[in-house]
């Protein structure tokens, strides 16, 4: 009798089965019980820097709450909060945050940590802005019509950038001012490739420094502080908001354990912490 070779579809199934077996565990992702699961809207900087991956597993271990982190620009995070699509926010745009609080849809708003913004650019510094005050530096870039790359995505960083331009009395436009509409990492990449200047949070810059052709040119200006707040949403924003989960997350972020994780984050890799824990302080007490 003629031996039949195995059917290719069976082979395919067997191969995929082998992959699954090699992975050791069944392919099903451990789906979080919907009972204790909350949605966090946060900024790209907390994800791109890797901080979230340190914080969230510890939070889940401590409280049993599963977290779905959605990393978007601060503008979108605030809007998702206002619509009640998410339960809690970790964001960095104080003026816009205060507007959200004024809508009456939020619970507590607590200071968690800060880092600072820095102006980065090519080492040759064609606009000659090194070590100037932030607003003066922007004035110098505009005056020299050197390329400035903006986030343009309504993020906390862009809001800060626009506030600095306003402070400098300039409304930036023209070929030297380009907007990427993307996250911090992508924008840094564009600035690096095109030899332009950009405003970045220090954490993302440090995390990516080795892959960029950019240097910190302006830092330490008090106007460049970058405070992060956790904001609880309430059912006033939407019926499905999980206030209990939001409260658990906010409480945990300002707890000694979370603050210690934040203080130690990045020390091993970058020789200095990427964020400074600030629980219990107010923004006016901060210094970079």
């Amino acid at each position: 009798m003629k031996r039949r070779s195995p059917h290719p579809l069976l082979l395919l199934l067997a191969t995929l089965g082998l992959v699954a077996a090699a992975c050791g565990s069944p392919g099903q992702a451990a789906g979080p019980g919907d009972e204790r699961s909350l949605i966090l809207a946060t900024t790209t900087s907390t994800q791109d820097s890797g901080l979230l991956e340190e914080l969230l597993p510890a939070f889940t271990a401590d409280t049993g709450w599963q977290v779905k982190p959605i990393a978007v620009g601060t503008g979108q995070a605030l809007e998702l909060g206002r619509r009640g699509e998410v339960d809690v926010l970790l964001v960095h745009a104080p003026p816009a945050e205060k507007k959200l609080v004024a809508t009456g849809t939020t619970g507590r708003r607590l200071l968690v940590m800060h880092n600072d913004f820095v102006l980065v650019g090519p080492a040759t510094d064609p606009a000659g802005i090194r070590d100037e005050a932030a607003a003066d530096a922007l004035g110098g870039i505009a005056g020299a019509r050197q390329l400035f790359v903006s986030r343009g995505d309504d993020s906390g960083t862009e809001k800060k950038e626009l506030a600095l331009w306003e402070q400098a009395g300039i409304s930036p436009s023209g070929g030297w001012y380009q907007s990427t509409g993307q996250g911090m990492a992508a924008t840094l990449r564009v600035a690096s490739e095109k030899r332009g200047y950009t405003l970045t949070d220090r954490a993302t810059f440090l995390a990516l420094r080795d892959t960029l052709d950019l240097e910190v040119l302006v830092e330490g200006d008090p106007g460049l502080l970058n405070p992060y707040h956790v904001i609880e949403m309430t059912t006033a924003a939407g019926d499905s908001v999980r206030e209990e989960g939001a409260a658990a997350f906010a409480d945990w972020l300002v707890s000694a354990r979370a603050q210690k994780i934040i203080a130690g984050f990045g020390v091993r890799e970058y020789g200095r912490p990427l964020f400074v824990p600030d629980a219990g302080k107010s923004v006016s007490e901060l210094t970079s």
Binding site: V19, A22, C23, G27
Partner: peptide, 9 residues
């Protein structure tokens, strides 16, 4: 394990 899980998903 991370890559496997991502691939299977």
């Amino acid at each position: 394990s991370g890559t496997c899980q991502i691939t299977l998903l």
